[in-house]
Design a binder for these strands. Sequence first.
DNA 1: CACTTCAGATGACAGATGTCATGACGGCTT
DNA 2: AAGCCGTCATGACATCTGTCATCTGAAGTG
Lengths: 201, 201
Amino acid sequence: MIRILLADDEHLIRGALAALLALEDDLIVVGQAATGAEAIAAARALIPDVAVVDLQMPDLDGVTVADRLRVEVPTCRTMIVTSHGRPGHLKQALAAGVRGFLPKTVSAENLAMVVRTVHGGGRYVDPQLAAEAISAGDSPLTAREADVLQLASEGAPIEEIARRASLSPGTVRNYLSAAAGKLGAANRHEAARIARKSGWI
Amino acid sequence: MIRILLADDEHLIRGALAALLALEDDLIVVGQAATGAEAIAAARALIPDVAVVDLQMPDLDGVTVADRLRVEVPTCRTMIVTSHGRPGHLKQALAAGVRGFLPKTVSAENLAMVVRTVHGGGRYVDPQLAAEAISAGDSPLTAREADVLQLASEGAPIEEIARRASLSPGTVRNYLSAAAGKLGAANRHEAARIARKSGWI
DNA sequence: CACTTCAGATGACAGATGTCATGACGGCTT
DNA sequence: AAGCCGTCATGACATCTGTCATCTGAAGTG
């Protein structure tokens, strides 16, 4: 019997997934969480075999949860399900020790199968996401460029970005210019869109 | 027995919702669809009592589907579930004849209850979304302003927006300036963010 | 008809932004 | 030690963008 912890902020989805997994004889949902923090607390208390975590949650994202679980509950294998899978997220997730990564477009049978695979020590990544991740390649941005672009993506003027990043406005412009160049964008806003779409910020 | 059509592009969610609704004695899921077009075709063939439609789908969005169903399958009541409920979407949905509007954070019992309410001729809108919609008010943007802002939201420079909208660059700037003023934004990019968050574009 | 309203356009101006050259510093590699 | 790279900064310049005043033509209204 595989003991599962479910974490997803959407009550409806979480309940529905639980109902779905309950149909499988060898799976049992032992706990549910609506936020990243709850998920970590529940995992510590319940020590599940597998944690099925949504990528987008109000507080911590799924990758952060996976990273913490790897340290705090080492026997728990983590897998992530997501609506909007970006190539960059997949890379981050694998780096955080995630064993399975699936879009929510998969079927229920597939989900159960992957839960078993992950529990058995295997890994599973959705083939389409994997292909996208490979073709998208690594982020060409340096750490600071990504930082600055992250702030720029909210539409703030350069002066505000400079204040929030504790940099001089000139430096901010240099970074944004470099980032836009690397991403083939005409301006920082387009660059921010590209980086976000690829999961690089 | 209430006959239900489910439309959601995420296979996992759709199957899970079906499993969940199947637990209720008076509800039966008679059909499922993964796209807006499929949903309309299925509704025409099956004539369900209630259509439960996701707001975001690859081709047509939930509001468009509702609008078409109202005309093509008048006996079918439509309700919408969504992950990211924006105030503007709620208004559009009600205008399209939608009878129920729920975020996916509701519980399964609530969903079943709302299905019954809608089937009985009633309406149900999530209280929190309703409050947001009322406080957000109507879109202050004119039709053209919204058009231009829509194009601007992709990060394109003004000249490209002008070409795509068949307007002169100067006019585009005027509209964007007016829109930014109305939305209290410092520039068009921030204005686009605000308008998108409110569901106005 | 006179009046108003609105989409669309133009031109001018100031300020914001993108681009480039240049320099300094620290860490890492060879 | 020498060289490369990432980080941070400054200054100059051209261009882009936001703002405003003003104009046109079409449509609607009294």
